[in-house]
């Protein structure tokens, strides 16, 4: 079904490609931290900022990795590299697992930088220890990348893929609680929020902030994220085809 050697070879190649461009890698690693500092200063005190800040620790890595993921599969298909790879002994599962491994590696680095900024410059205080929010941030980033990959697999070109950002991600971001507190939102918006994939990110982070080690709310949302991630990746494997017309 898959081979460790092949999966790791593809992983290395993806990471090389993503991080080759210095500007792109700085953006990927630093942007969530910069956004946190920016938003922190919209609030008067660190205590006021904490609810939003905790959500941002998950939401911004997820969004930034979504952006990376959403162009990758489209690019591979348009350049013909997807067909070239699938004509080698590499399997579709190798291909998808390699993207998962690359997402894990990139998101861990990103999570460390984001959480470090959040707790120092952002002055965040949470009931759970920072490492837990870091781990959650990484999970959110992997989840974001998977969402990006499935969108990318559906799209015909990079233009379409970038249209999905305002089409799918921005609405979810607007009503997930980062911009406006959930309790004061209209009922029908809250009903939508409950079933958005992206809400798992903010709900898990909020749980981790409010309760030490997050409790059942954290577990439920983490599991939901993991399941959605797996579903998205299997979806990618199902959509890409070795044989094309």
């Amino acid at each position: 079904m898959f081979s460790v050697r092949i999966t790791l070879a593809i992983t290395r190649r993806i990471l090389r490609e993503v991080f080759r461009d210095t500007r792109a890698s700085i953006f990927l690693l630093v942007a969530p931290g910069v956004l946190i500092v920016l938003v922190r200063n919209l609030f008067e005190s660190a205590a006021d900022f904490a609810p939003t800040g905790a959500m941002m620790l998950g939401a911004f890595p997820a969004l930034s990795m979504y952006m990376v993921g959403s162009t990758l599969v489209v690019r591979e298909r348009n350049r013909g590299t997807l067909e070239a790879i699938l004509a080698t002994p590499a399997s579709r599962l190798d291909f998808v697992l390699a993207y998962l491994c690359a997402a894990v590696a990139a998101s861990l680095v990103q999570a460390v930088s984001t959480v470090a900024v959040g707790y120092t410059l952002g002055g965040l205080e949470t009931a759970s220890p920072p490492w837990l929010l870091g781990a959650m941030a990484a999970l959110c980033a992997i989840f974001g990348m998977s969402l990006g990959l499935i969108c990318s697999a559906i799209c015909q070109n990079e233009g379409q893929a970038s249209q999905l950002v305002p089409g799918i991600m921005v609405p979810q971001l607007l009503i997930c609680g980062v911009f406006w507190p959930l309790p004061v939102m209209a009922d029908w918006l809250r009903a939508i929020e409950r079933f958005m994939p992206f809400s798992t990110v903010t709900r898990a982070m909020t749980a981790a902030r409010e309760h030490s080690y997050g409790g059942s709310e954290l577990v439920v949302n983490s599991v939901a994220m993991a399941v959605l991630t797996a579903a998205a990746l299997l979806g990618v494997a199902a959509i890409i085809r070795r044989r094309t017309a």
């Binding site: 050697r5 070879a9 290395r12 002994p89």
Partner: peptide
């Protein structure tokens, strides 16, 4: 080297 790895 990438393709070499795919073909062992």
């Amino acid at each position: 080297r990438h393709f070499a790895a795919l073909y062992r």
